[in-house]
Design a protein around this nucleic acid. Structure first.
Length: 799
RNA sequence: GGGCAAGUGGUGGAAUGGCAUACACGACAGACUUAAAAUCUGUUGGCUGCAAGGUCGUGAGGGUUCGACUCCCUCCUUGCCCACCA
């Protein structure tokens, strides 16, 4: 007989909802636990990735609840973004209606999984009660100079007339209309995250419960590197070209200088020179290419001579100034010194254009004497040559000496370089938070007053998907009176990037209905920081970095007194089918709902936790689902055959399982926690269980299969929810066996086992081992050199 | 090119430096059944052997150790992240 999962799951979901059992209350007398899973984008259906993410969080939340914590476990929707606009165009509907329809449907599905969310705290970033606080935060940042507008090069689709994020440019073309993407100078809003770079880097050290690789990625992204800026004087007009290098030891080998085509000095340098026309043509050509295609590997590096020369400050050599596409304005100073002998890109470029080369670092093994013999640049370690007074030094030492020498003699400067750029948040999109700024012909850029928030999205913007910001076409939205002078003015029509919305939602969950502040200070003080955050590795950089940035900003506003939002982070692996990521385009999606129909949510939860540890990839297996379902049924049947009193060995097995399951859940090893429950069930099938053993078994599996356990719990005569019970404790005296099996090795190979009393004296143990016949045979009369004893486990006899 | 993971039976996966393959799936066998399903009980790394046993075995090769899936070095493969990064 199979248990009736359908009836049971519906019944307890209703029960939990009626009793408001997951409601989180501000209870300072109790220890709190804030468990958060990354909120979903409401695309309509939940997929296996969501199921995995949220099941992990749910088990952990329920476990913490049973351990007596006041648990905050909220859920909401990251509801702004482009897919809603696309869907609206496609389905002839409005993004608002489409999004809310998706949210409603996803909520039904999430509830079917039995997740323990406090739905009273639900939030949606597309509601003005939420996004007004985005605008509030933006204004606070604007006041402090952290939100600013500047012109810079961005990806631009001429046919859609909108900017594109790098991810939206596919092989140099617009992802929607396939036009060639261009680079364009545009005025856009930025957040000055670079102001926080030191703290964002330094505080990574506090995050000892984050995965190492996420820390590494953040480190990498912030990208602090030590280097040297070197000044090359232009021969014509004494102006300086500043180059950035991490290899000052190669400065004596610099044979030309290269500027990025966009470099501000370029136009000045080429003016009036015979090379001007060719150079301008080249600059234009590069400008037309998108960053993406320019950055593609195998593309040949192209460049032209400017006609100008500059002077190497260390040896007064006069060398030519080039422009080339392989030098990027965004990195360093937008100018490099080229050392063809010791940099592969410079090497290829110099070969191509017949530029001179000079060896300045020699590897000890090298037989190469002139640059003409080289087939590639030598980028390794070596000894300085052709480097004036530094000849003979190891290049690593020279690196330091030369940069110090240049710094002292004003030829250059030791600098720290950061890879982190300011964050471009302007989007020419409709479905996002309007940026609360007004442009007044008289007063200039004027922030919307706090009292006038929210700046609401107009409901009926023209939606075609073509050409510019839809908000710009809504006259009632754009036309506004200047808050300062009262004259006619115009609103900003760009909206914010959606990463803005998700950079602080965890704070809003502490008091989602607060109307005076983005969050209640006292509530936030109690609940924050998030004790456990769980989500996909794809957010390892941007979302987590932005959230850390916002947290530090709130700290600076004096609204919170901690500097990191997420104490512990778990990044769950992807769900695969036949070795590939589940996706619509591959057509290998397994719909969670179909599994719930067939075997129930508890089976799905059990399988997804059992199939792999949470951080690794999970291979979907329909037969594994059946196995999980069988196990629940096997456990279910125990209730019909309870004994008066179970055997001692069953109690031992129970307490062993209590310890193992507790330890494993704490450290997210759900798969082995379940394995130990299976072992316990196997023991019970051999020897029988009593009511006490069974009750504790039901408690142990309750975070994993909550409906199932709630039903069994009530079947055992309990009147209250299992969630109000206490997590079982183990009796450590039951974990120790009187007689233990000790493995005996001879020269490291297992040759036998002896059963001895746990308190046996060392000498007696040694004797017992040597007398064991299976061991004796291997020792014979050879002299025993040494005996190694691992207490309670193993004896190794070395002969 | 740089950084980080990972590599164990037919499969998913276990193993604080101490019995490699727990637990499960699959397969095979037995019990129950007129029969099947379900359920329960066994067997299940390779080679060798009638058997007891022996021997090999955690991507490859070295090293440390009484003892290595685990630690160190070199390499191979796969995955992820970053990258014309100067």
């Amino acid at each position: 007989m199979l248990y009736n999962f359908k009836e049971i799951e519906e019944k307890w979901q209703r029960f939990w909802q009626e009793k408001s059992i997951f409601k989180a209350g501000y209870s300072p007398e109790k220890k709190k636990f804030y468990c958060l899973e990354m909120f979903p984008y409401p695309s309509g259906k939940i997929h296996m990735g969501h199921v995995r993410n949220y099941t992990i969080g749910d088990v952990y939340s329920r476990y913490q609840r049973l351990k007596g914590r006041e648990v905050l476990h909220p859920m909401g929707f990251d509801a702004f973004g482009q897919p809603a606009e696309n869907a609206a165009i496609k389905n002839q509907t409005k993004p608002d209606a489409w999004t809310h329809g998706c949210i409603d449907w996803m909520k039904v599905e999430l509830k079917k999984m039995g997740f323990s969310y406090d739905w009273d705290r639900e939030l949606s970033t597309c509601d003005s009660s939420y996004y007004r606080w985005n605008q509030w935060i933006f204004l606070k940042m604007f006041e402090r100079g952290l939100a600013y507008k500047k012109a810079s090069g961005v990806n631009w689709c001429p046919s859609c007339s909108t900017t594109l994020a790098n991810e939206e440019v596919i092989e140099g073309e617009c992802w929607r209309c396939h036009s060639q993407v261009e680079q364009k100078e545009l005025e856009q809003w930025y957040l000055r995250i670079s102001e926080y770079k030191e703290r964002l880097l330094e505080d990574l050290k506090q995050l000892d419960k984050w995965p190492q690789r996420v820390i590494a990625m953040q480190n990498n992204w912030i990208g602090k590197s030590q280097g040297t800026e070197i000044y090359f004087r232009l021969k014509d007009n004494d102006k300086l070209i500043t180059v950035f290098t991490t290899r000052p030891d190669t400065i004596f080998g610099a044979t030309y200088v290269v500027l990025a085509p966009e470099h501000p000095l370029v136009k000045e340098i080429i003016k009036g020179k015979p090379q001007e026309k060719e150079a301008l043509a080249f600059i234009e050509k590069v400008a037309k290419e998108s960053k993406i295609s320019r950055v593609k590997e195998d593309v040949k590096k192209e460049g032209v001579w400017t006609g100008a020369y500059c002077v190497n400050p260390v040896n007064q050599e006069v060398i030519p100034v080039w422009i080339a596409d392989y030098v990027l304005m965004e990195y360093g100073t937008g100018a490099i010194m080229a050392v063809p002998t010791h940099d592969q890109r410079d090497f290829l470029f110099a070969r191509e254009h017949n530029l001179p080369m000079k060896i300045v670092i020699k590897s000890p093994q090298s037989t190469v004497h002139s640059p003409q013999e080289m087939i590639e640049a030598y980028e390794g370690e070596g000894v300085q040559v052709n480097s004036g007074e530094f000849d003979g030094l190891a290049n690593q030492e020279a690196k330091i000496k030369i940069s110090q020498w240049m710094d002292k003699n004003s030829m250059g400067k030791i600098v720290t370089h950061w890879r982190l750029r300011d964050w471009l948040i302007s989007r020419q999109r409709y479905w996002g938070t309007p940026i609360p700024i007004i442009y007044c012909p008289k007063c200039g850029v004027v922030p919307v007053p706090y009292a006038a928030l929210p700046v609401e999205l107009p409901e009926d913007a023209p939606f075609t998907g073509e050409g510019g910001s839809p908000l710009g076409k809504v006259k009632e939205f754009v036309d506004v009176l200047c808050p300062e002078c009262g004259e006619k003015a115009r609103r900003e029509t760009d909206t914010m990037a959606t990463f803005f919305d998700s950079s602080w939602y965890f704070l809003r969950f502490c008091s989602p209905k607060n109307e005076n502040n983005p969050f209640d200070l006292q509530e936030a003080k109690y609940w924050m920081p998030v004790d456990q955050y769980i989500g996909g590795i794809e957010h390892a950089i941007l979302h987590l970095l932005y959230s850390r940035f916002f947290t530090k900003f709130f700290q600076d506003l004096g609204m919170i007194d901690f500097n990191e939002p997420f104490k512990s982070l778990l990044t769950q692996g992807m769900v695969l089918k036949d070795g590939e990521v589940m996706s619509k385009s591959r057509g290998n999606i397994v719909d969670p709902d179909s599994i719930i129909q067939k075997c129930g949510a508890d089976t799905l939860r059990l399988f997804i936790l059992f199939a792999a540890p949470p951080e690794t990839e999970l291979e979907w297996d329909d037969r594994g689902i059946e196995g999980a379902f069988k196990f629940l049924n096997r456990l279910w049947r125990i209730q019909d055959n309870l004994k008066e009193k179970a055997d001692l060995q069953v109690y031992r097995a129970l307490h062993k399982a209590i310890k193992k399951v507790s330890d494993d859940i704490e450290s997210f090893k759900f798969n082995t926690a379940i394995a130990s429950l299976m072992e316990l069930v196997n023991v019970i099938y051999q020897s029988g269980a009593d009511k006490e053993v069974f009750s504790k078994l039901v408690l142990l599996i309750s975070p994993i299969a909550p409906h199932f356990s709630e039903e069994l719990w009530h079947g055992l005569g309990n009147k209250e929810s299992i969630l109000n019970a206490a997590w079982p404790e183990y009796d450590s005296s039951l974990l120790v066996e009187e007689n233990i099996a000790v493995v005996v090795q001879v020269n490291g190979k297992v040759r036998g086992t002896v059963i001895v009393n746990k308190d046996i004296a060392e000498e007696d143990l040694k004797k017992a081992c040597q007398e064991e016949p299976a061991v004796r045979k291997w020792i014979e009369d050879k002299p025993v050199r040494k005996i190694i004893i691992v207490p309670g486990k193993l004896v190794n006899i070395v002969i």
